[in-house]
């Protein structure tokens, strides 16, 4: 029994110390769209190097899920989303400080197996029977962009699957289950040699704007504004450009 009590006490102590602030360090919590994983990861490191004692914590997920978490009261200082609709939702819930600003654009492209063995050349080729095509589901940003391209080109796809996020589409192409998938330009870049790209010029007319905003009730409002401005700085632009994003 004494052993149990000691273990209990130790657990309570450990839990208490885990909640306490860690030394003098300050944490800045940034909620960012999953497609920003690489670029914001690099930005966070640079920001930490410039600000001694600051720990940037990235929460990376689908924009819609992040918007929901923020509306449910998740503690966050900065929100960077992959389209304007999700940012509007957060703004409508009264959680945004000031006006969100667009810092990057992204557009869809066609991802195929390395070397493009099936010789896919255009969006219209994706509608050919016998081809396994995977897209995002319409409610998520990459899905609504795909629908927009269907509308622009007048080509209707018959996808084998409508995935929940763009990384899932990429996985299906990477593993060879899908012959082609509609993903962002930045995803093709981050996948390196594992997939090849087929240019999709029509996508330029259906590009997403990426807005960023400081959140109301941010624990570190000063630092949050600095981080937002850092995204717009030369360093920020370079990182985004390198990841394949377009300038706003």
């Amino acid at each position: 029994m004494r052993g149990v009590r000691a273990a209990l006490a130790a657990t309570v102590l450990a839990a208490a110390s885990a909640c306490a602030p860690a030394g003098e360090g300050t944490a800045l919590t940034v909620f960012a769209a999953a497609s920003l994983t690489d670029s914001f990861g690099a930005l966070a490191e640079r920001f930490e190097a410039d600000h001694a004692g600051v720990d940037v914590r990235l929460n990376l997920a689908g924009s819609a899920r992040l918007a929901q978490q923020i509306q449910e009261g998740a503690p966050a200082d900065v929100y960077a989303s992959a389209n304007e609709r999700t940012m509007r939702e957060v703004a409508a819930a009264g959680r945004v400080e000031g006006e969100p600003r667009t810092f990057a654009t992204n557009r869809l492209t066609i991802a195929v197996a390395p070397g493009n063995p099936l010789g896919i050349e255009s969006f219209a080729d994706l509608a050919e029977p016998g081809l396994t095509v995977v897209v995002c589901a319409p409610p998520v940003p990459c899905g609504s962009a795909a629908e927009e391209i269907e509308r622009i080109t007048g080509v209707t796809l018959r996808p084998a699957s409508e995935e929940q996020n763009v990384k899932a589409v990429l996985t299906k192409v990477r593993t060879g289950e899908a012959d082609a998938g509609l993903v962002y330009v930045t995803d093709v870049l981050s996948a390196g040699q594992e997939v090849a790209e087929v240019e999709l010029p029509e996508a330029a007319r259906a590009s997403n704007d990426y807005p960023v905003a400081v959140l109301k009730d941010a624990a570190e409002p000063e630092l949050a504004r600095e981080f937002r401005d850092f995204v717009f700085s030369d360093v920020g632009r370079q990182e985004l450009l390198r990841a394949g994003f377009g300038a706003p």
């Binding site: 084998a160 699957s161 409508e162 995935e163 899932a168 996985t171």
Partner: peptide
């Protein structure tokens, strides 16, 4: 969702 995907009436 990983193995079968997600399509209404077929795998969703």
């Amino acid at each position: 969702i990983t193995f079968a995907g997600s399509l209404e009436g077929v795998t969703r």
